[in-house]
Simulated scan of single mutants.
Amino acid sequence: MRFLWDPLTLPARHRVLLRRLARREFEARYRGSILGLAWAVITPVAMMAVYTFVFHSVLAARWPGHAVDDRMGYALNLLAGLIVFNVIAECLGRAPRLILENPSYVKKLVFPVEILPVVALLGAMISASIGCLVLLLIQWTMVGPPSLAILLLPLLVMPLLFLCLGATYLLAALGVFLRDIGQIIGPLVMVLMFLSPVFYPAESVPQPWRDWLVLNPLAATIGWVRGAVLLGNLPSAGTYFGQLVAGILFLALGYRTFMALRPSFADVV
Rank of each mutant, 00 (worst) to 15 (best):
G254M: 11
F85Y: 03
A12F: 07
L116V: 02
F199P: 09
P263N: 02
A252G: 01
G81Y: 05
D70N: 13
G254N: 05
L17V: 06
T168A: 13
L121P: 00
M142S: 03
W5V: 15
A172I: 10
R31I: 07
V68P: 11
V229H: 05
L195V: 14
I34H: 05
V50A: 10
L121K: 06
Q243R: 14
L249P: 02
R97G: 07
A252W: 00
Y169H: 07
G247N: 12
S104H: 14
F26P: 06
A219E: 05
F3T: 11
L153K: 03
V214G: 02
L234K: 09
Q139E: 05
L163Y: 00
T9F: 06
V143I: 14
L163R: 14
I138C: 01
R19V: 09
F3Q: 15
G81M: 12
S129N: 09
V189C: 08
P96F: 07
T43Q: 15
V54C: 11
I181N: 03
L231I: 12
L79R: 07
K108W: 04
L215I: 10
A252N: 03
R31Y: 00
I248F: 04
D70M: 11
K108D: 10
L163W: 02
A75G: 05
T168H: 03
S104G: 13
V268T: 10
V191W: 03
G144S: 04
F241C: 06
E27V: 12
G123Y: 04
V84E: 06
L156F: 01
F162D: 01
T239C: 07
E203G: 11
